[in-house]
């Protein structure tokens, strides 16, 4: 292909560089601030310190258990409740499937604040136990599970394999464990990782339904932001990033490899 180095190409490449810089600079800046003894005197003035990380960990550490507990409950709900729905939707067993799919997308369109307020008003009794928080976060991840799981579950090859297994006498449990789950393991893992990352960082909806006595990690981070110590908030943010980014990267890799696997067939 003969490509003249034209004006347009240049614009696009410049835009790509700008986008990457815009995304990376705040992260690098935050890391820089988090290791500075006193950011108001300038970054790294007076050397490098880990003190802010120790303080941030004091704030966030106690929240790790409760946060992961909520996330684990959300993931269990995703597998036990939402995955069967995705399967039924993919097999077109749900009457009004198109309407149901639109309803599953509602938590994306309706802002988390609105949904959180609605849940807090409708079921205040479930709030103190944390049940409402789990339910709310499960709702938030439903659209991602449906978008990530229905297409692989609707794959004609899988439908055929399930049917063959069925005609050979495999019961539903056996089909699930030996045919369906192995076939969707990559998209399932990617969807669950996205769900975990969303659940760990969820703030908008959780703000209204979190049990006041058992707040999750984002709330501790938020209070670190309001202490006016820039370095403390920065250290907390980096700790959060260290927890979330690997999950997101792994999800991206899994989604990539499941796609390329499909293309190779």
């Amino acid at each position: 292909m003969t490509r003249r180095p034209g004006h347009r190409e240049w614009v696009g490449q410049a835009a790509l560089v700008v986008v990457s810089v815009v995304v990376l600079v705040p992260i690098l800046g935050t890391v820089l601030v988090s290791v500075s003894p006193d950011a108001s005197r300038g970054p790294l003035v007076g050397g490098v310190t880990a003190d802010w990380y120790a303080m941030a960990w004091q704030l966030l550490g106690p929240k790790v258990g409760p946060t992961l507990g909520v996330t684990a409950a959300v993931l269990v709900g995703a597998v036990l409740v939402v995955l069967p729905l995705c399967h039924a939707l993919a097999r077109r067993l749900v009457p009004g499937g198109a309407v149901v799919r639109q309803v599953t997308m509602l938590p994306l369109a309706v802002p988390g604040v609105a949904l959180g307020l609605a849940l807090a008003a409708s079921d205040p009794g479930l709030r103190s136990s944390g049940g409402l928080l789990v339910v709310g976060q499960l709702l938030i991840v439903v659209p991602f599970l449906v978008a990530g799981l229905v297409p692989p579950l609707a794959d004609p090859d899988l439908v055929e394999a399930e049917r063959v297994a069925s005609t050979l006498g495999a019961g539903p449990t056996r089909r699930l464990l030996t045919v369906t789950l192995p076939a969707i393991r990559l998209p399932l893992a990617a969807s669950l990782l996205i769900a975990a990352a969303l659940s760990i960082g969820e703030f908008n909806l959780s703000f209204f339904v979190v049990p006041p006595a058992h707040q999750t990690a984002p709330f501790a981070l938020y209070s670190a932001f309001t202490t006016q110590r820039l370095e403390l908030g920065a250290a907390g943010s980096v700790l959060f990033g260290v927890a979330l980014v690997p999950a997101a990267v792994t999800a991206a890799l899994l989604a990539r490899s499941s796609l390329s696997r499909k293309e190779h067939r």
Binding site: P26, G201, Y222, F225, S237, F240, L244
Partner: peptide, 10 residues
């Protein structure tokens, strides 16, 4: 991956 509060903090 970052929650909205962290992006505000950036």
């Amino acid at each position: 991956a970052f929650p909205g509060i962290v992006i505000g903090f950036f």
